[in-house]
Design a protein around this nucleic acid. Structure first.
Lengths: 341, 341
DNA sequence: AAATTCTTTGCAAACGATTTCGAAAAATCT
DNA sequence: AGATTTTTCGAAATCGTTTGCAAAGAATTT
């Protein structure tokens, strides 16, 4: 046995295991002198309590899980960064799980974690998730849970998101003010509340500005290949959209690709704006106008709220449904024809 | 007690706890009938073994840690994706730790994990890491460990990386063949082996092609602001570089920003090539020529090797130092002046 | 039929930390 | 001085699972 544990410390110091444990946890019922002796030896031997023994006894893991659809996406990376900005100070560890936009994986992961491995989870649901029973079951089990970005607002759990509808409205309005008459909305297939919020914002802008052309809602998937085919068709059809509002970055990229293919000039023939957290959007040809989500803040706030729940503190009403504002960054892809950005 | 555990199953079935445990682990010493009875009830009650108790008893955590400098970087995201492509099938969980390029954090994290919380770690060292004692201590403790990308080749641990020197050579050669006379190398400050490999490739290309101009090695940090200042100065000085080889993507982005600021045309006045795993590099203005690292494969292979070590299998010689080739993607940022890409 | 193996199960001791309870010693109060 | 409280510590139970060992019964061999 080369691992140093409480028993070894106790024997070395001629103390009981319980005394050593208490001393290290700074219990009031241990004399300062004893504490000092214990601490000194613990430091010298580099003692570190076995986390599994602690977790078993105390029934908490000091670990949370973050469940996201994908990781090759700046938004989720930034969220993780935000989460990680609070976890170390809480002495917590972060497990990452990827659903790859697969409902079954998502359900299985939640099932897998219902054994005390984590003290709570933060989840952004996959776009193939239509049934939320697995999440509701988790909620009912009383294990701390926070949803972010891809939320399920019908469930009574904290939801942290951005002002999707409002920004979708502004994005559409922006295109309209730039002269677009025929704006297409590129949204995620599925029935995510986030998609619906963005779609609603798009529709309400069209309505408010009494746009003659009917709304053009295109549902895309996560496969680039088919997306490009669909967009190719969209841009060949008459009337051709002169404005594109992409609900997610990938669709904007696909739009750029197809426009290049079809020799459609952005922004002269087609203006493009998109939700995106890509730093490099400013370097695109042309620079892409974006709606930037406060991803880092979403991660940080979601983590803070999760810890409040874990620590059994009361949540303020605004923490149960927190909305952090996005920012519209106007760039060349939505410039009016004469304009130079 | 609403949690279902072995004791509850045993009582319900009128069996000993040990029998139930063995039945669920499909031990040969339990009769098929008993196994079936146990499995049935376990399924019915949704029994899931407590991982902390298991870990404590078996002295393994079924968890690995991935320690990286940052996560807002496509390369590391893709690596994580690659890692995650093997962990679930091994029944393993993945903890993520960020060092934020801080040696002290890196050391502390390694220290923090030396208590059995993880069965092994995969690490890409921070660029402020000059001392590798913390990693060597980990190695000496005999806990499975794999280094990837930002490796420490002087240590006797498996290193998984790409052919940095070769690709740096090719990148520099590419710029030379495109007519560059004065190529600057933008490398990371610090003394990482990866930086040295890339720098060496750059230098050997200059040497092979007998370039008259002296090498121009610029060391940049991770702060955008100072980087831009340094580059600004670089491009105002005579002789002005007509080619830039960026060792990391961020520096290429900085170069683009500064060139735009100074009205230097890429690729006419300055050609740029960079290590980068950014999908959207093709959409840049101009499209950025890149050296694409097999990030996903690096993650997958590193994980596979780590599991071989965890499972105490012998490593093949090539697994102790694995080199996965990168790919040079020629785009507009290195086009010769007349050429259109 | 006796001796032996094999199969199947139970008992109890780990794993290492935390915590309840109680006891001895010291300090404070009548 | 005696009674009472406070301080300080130890013994043992506990968390839930795994596993060495023993034991009983069944099956096989001699």
């Amino acid at each position: 046995m080369d691992q140093v544990n409480l028993k070894k410390l106790a024997k070395e110091l001629n103390l009981a295991v319980s005394t050593v444990s208490r001393a290290l946890r700074d219990s009031h019922e241990i004399s300062p002198q004893t504490k000092e002796r214990v601490r000194e030896l613990a430091l010298k031997l580099g003692f570190q309590p076995n986390p599994h023994a602690s977790s078993l006894r105390q029934n908490k893991s000091k670990t949370i899980a973050v469940i996201i659809p994908e990781i090759e996406n700046n938004f989720f990376s930034q969220v993780i960064n935000g989460i990680e900005s609070v976890t170390p100070s809480k002495g917590y560890h972060v497990l990452i799980y990827l659903t790859h936009e697969d409902y079954n994986k998502e359900r299985d992961i939640l099932q897998l974690l219902r054994n005390g491995r984590v003290d709570g989870i933060m989840i952004s649901v996959s776009n193939s998730t239509t049934n939320t029973d697995h999440i509701d079951a988790w909620r009912q089990a009383g294990i701390p849970l926070v949803l972010f970005d891809r939320t399920c607002e019908e469930l009574d759990v904290p939801n942290i998101m951005t002002n999707d509808a409002e920004m979708a409205f502004k994005a559409t309005e922006h295109l309209l003010k730039r002269g677009c008459k025929q704006i297409a909305f590129l949204g995620m297939a599925g029935n995510l509340s986030i998609s619906n919020r963005r779609k609603a914002g798009y529709l309400s802008a069209l309505e408010k500005y009494k746009v003659a052309a009917p709304p053009q809602i295109v549902e895309l998937a996560t496969k680039d290949y088919t997306n490009r085919e669909i967009l190719n068709e969209l841009f060949r059809r008459q009337p051709r959209p002169d404005g594109v509002f992409a609900a997610i970055e990938k669709f904007a990229v696909n739009t750029y690709e197809v426009c290049k293919e079809l020799n459609l000039h952005i922004p002269r023939e087609v203006k493009v704006i998109s939700f995106s957290n890509l730093q490099a959007a400013a370097l695109f040809d042309p620079a892409l106008s974006t709606i930037i989500q406060p991803a880092y803040d979403i991660g940080r706030e979601a983590a803070n709220i999760l810890f409040k729940i874990i620590e059994k503190k009361m949540l303020m009403p605004y923490e149960k449904r927190m909305i952090l504002p996005s920012q519209l960054m106007e760039r060349a892809s939505t410039a009016i024809n004469s304009e130079r950005l």
